[in-house]
Simulated scan of single mutants.
Amino acid sequence: MKIRPLSIEGAWEVTSPQHGDPRGMFMEYYRFDHLAEAVGHPLRLAQANLSVSARGVVRGVHFADVPPGQAKYVSCVSGAVLDVIVDLRVGSPTFGRWEGVRLDDVDRRAVYLSEGLGHGFCALSESATLSYFCSATYNPTGEHTVHPLDPDLGIEWPADAPQLSVRDAAAPSLAEAVAGGLLPSYDAVREFTASLDNG
């Protein structure tokens, strides 16, 4: 298993070897020990989600209050998506920057994003199923979204006419989220993740 950091601190790409023969394929697509070694602490599995989307659907950019935040381990079990990580931590050296990773059912890569980062994706195939393990259960009062089409973010979504949920379409811009005090601070996130490293 190869785990490499992305350009945004707190985000990693995971590539696992696939073992195939005429019967099919086998792989370890999640190893808590390998991930913990790279990240500094194990991912506490509190909830697992499946999301099925049609081509051109854009979901996100979603994030959670820190603490407790919500770290995610994301893979595409069917189809293909452009998975996007956005640094929403106020005060971070890469604040407002995004990075995209293609996740699909061929290379079967995964991404891990730590607490405080924003997450979104765009379905590239006719249907795409995303699986993600989460470090915290869903908390409707502590989870938020930033508008995925905000020009200040400048995310290059690979869809001519992105399809958004009502919630995402009504989301504040990055500037509005900053002004409203919705975003986590870089220092608070670092302090929280450091407590996980020591715990």
Rank of each mutant, 00 (worst) to 15 (best):
K2L: 13
R4P: 00
I8Y: 00
E9K: 04
W12I: 06
W12E: 05
E13R: 13
D21E: 12
F26R: 01
M27Y: 14
Y29F: 15
R31H: 11
F32R: 10
F32P: 10
A36P: 00
A38I: 07
V39P: 03
V39R: 14
A46W: 02
A48W: 02
R55I: 11
R55D: 07
V57C: 10
V58A: 04
V61Y: 00
H62W: 02
A64S: 14
P68V: 12
Q70M: 12
Q70K: 11
S78W: 08
G79D: 07
G79N: 06
A80L: 02
V81F: 03
V84C: 14
L88D: 00
W98K: 09
W98D: 14
E99C: 13
L103Q: 12
D104H: 09
D105A: 10
Y112P: 07
L113Y: 04
L113E: 08
S114Y: 04
L117P: 04
F121C: 03
E126G: 12
S127P: 00
L130H: 00
S131N: 11
Y132E: 10
T137C: 10
Y138H: 13
T145N: 09
P148D: 12
L149Y: 03
E156K: 13
P162W: 06
P162M: 08
P162A: 08
Q163F: 11
L164G: 04
S165V: 13
V166H: 11
R167T: 14
R167Y: 08
R167A: 13
D168I: 11
A169Y: 04
A170K: 11
A171R: 01
P172C: 06
P172T: 09
P172M: 03
L174H: 03
A175S: 13
V178D: 01
V178C: 12
A179Q: 11
R190N: 09
R190W: 01
E191H: 09
F192E: 13
F192D: 07
A194E: 15
A194C: 06
A194V: 06
L196C: 09
L196G: 08
N198V: 15
